[in-house]
Design a protein around this nucleic acid. Structure first.
Lengths: 252, 252
DNA sequence: TCGAATTTGTGCGTATGTATC
DNA sequence: GGATACATACGCACAAATTCG
């Protein structure tokens, strides 16, 4: 072909997109494999891959390595409430989802590590200070919903049973309650909220595409008596599926 | 090659990144061209391009077609404080920037329009209700910093001098103060925060690229006496340059 | 004004790696 | 283990932007 129209992968992408919006391919169903496209259009499989990657970035299809490409079904957007009702005590991050009757779960893994410069500054300690680092995957309806990473200085919790946030008798009760067990009263956390693109690894566990906009919350809890930080965490929420709420409607 | 180390473009990227962080390449200076890299490392120019593209996604370098690659000089990230000190009255959106000594400005434009379904729901009115819609561009150091769009039912402010938020004697004092003028006491606003990609138009006025992750805040003010919403707004902040803070460190 | 040289961007084929069934 | 599927790396040709003579 000498016609110098839009390039091959764009034409392929458009045809597939049209078929999806026309309802020819239904949400959740499998799309033609790269080999199918190669046979159908005559281009190398890289063309089909470029087309699918474009549609993936548009949020239209989902790639599963070793299985195939699928029409994406969009989950409803959920809201994470970041402030308890006036006078209430803050619970774990998924407390208000549970309240709303959403089925939630949790996977976590703890390791000890040395503080990076970034985390050291947030916890007001020297870089290299020993920390307990816990990674969480919050599940919603059995699927990964959002991620969290928490860091606590070993000097705060190291000598107590609660040193492992998600083991022993104090599972899933939230930072404030865990700290209360060892006599530390924490106030309302300070939250720094920003937006960035998801990394490849994050996108994989969250079943989205790399580069998707995400809400990132840097949360720090302070000891109310001394004013010193006792815990800091990063919450990573895919922007497409989540919003977070600060404040409550009066009378509601 | 049977050595299965990290791939070529990752090694190249790491070396360049190290040189930048070591200060060998200074912010704003030009980096080796793809041809230079090709000669230096012996790979095809695609390897160098992949390396630079990775560094570009990390925000470390900036590509200018036809000119070369440059070490990026990053504007400092600014923080928008979304809660006043305890006991204080909320001011306009840029109040805390002014407090921090940042040079801010404002461009705005008001029109009357009918409520869309989306905005009608947020303001608890019928779709089609007449609204005053005001678009803001907040300037920081003379450059567009973030965007805001505000909607108020004409039934609330229409008979008063304050009907135009940014004209007359009540310019730039914030929603709470303006509403106080007509005898309406508003409480702390409810803010729904999410992340999405910037549209082409937004990216243009904010001097970023379309698709860049942005923080979007849906803010609603309620009349404390009646509980009814009196104003709602969308704040759009490029994620790369902004974070928003909720809560304050105790004692700070 | 124009064209050549230089620089980055895009499209696409091929080989190889890795996950799934 | 083998077949199938997607992912990554990389080379090359050509396109587009910039600069300069």
């Amino acid at each position: 072909m000498t016609t110098t129209g839009p390039s091959a992968y764009l034409r392929v992408a458009e045809q597939i997109r049209d078929r999806i919006t026309a309802g020819e391919y239904l949400p959740g169903s499998q799309l033609p494999s790269l080999a199918d496209l190669q046979e159908q259009y005559g281009f190398s499989h890289g063309v089909g891959q470029s087309a699918y990657r474009l549609l993936e970035q548009e949020g239209v299809v989902l790639a599963k390595q070793g299985r195939g490409y699928f029409v994406r079904e969009q989950a409803p957007r959920r809201t994470l409430v970041r402030r308890p009702p006036a006078g209430g005590k803050p619970g774990p991050d998924n407390a208000f989802l549970v309240e709303q009757g959403v089925d939630t779960g949790l996977r976590s893994q703890s390791t000890t590590e040395a503080a990076t410069a970034d985390i050291a500054e947030r916890l007001d300690v020297e870089a290299g200070t020993p920390l307990m680092h816990t990674s969480y995957v919050y599940l919603v309806d059995g699927e990964p919903g959002f991620l969290a990473d928490s860091w606590e200085p070993m000097s705060v919790t190291g000598h107590h049973l609660i040193v492992l946030p998600e083991a022993g008798p104090h599972i899933g009760i939230g930072v404030a309650a865990r700290m209360a067990v060892i006599g530390i009263e924490v106030g309302e956390p300070v939250e720094l909220v920003t937006a960035r693109a998801l990394t490849r690894a994050e996108a994989q566990t969250l079943a989205t595409f790399p580069g998707a906009p995400a809400l990132v919350i840097h949360r720090t809890h302070y000891d109310q008596a001394t004013g010193r930080p006792v815990e800091t965490a990063d919450l990573v929420l895919p922007g497409e599926r989540w919003s977070t709420q600060y404040g409550r409607r009066p009378g509601a």
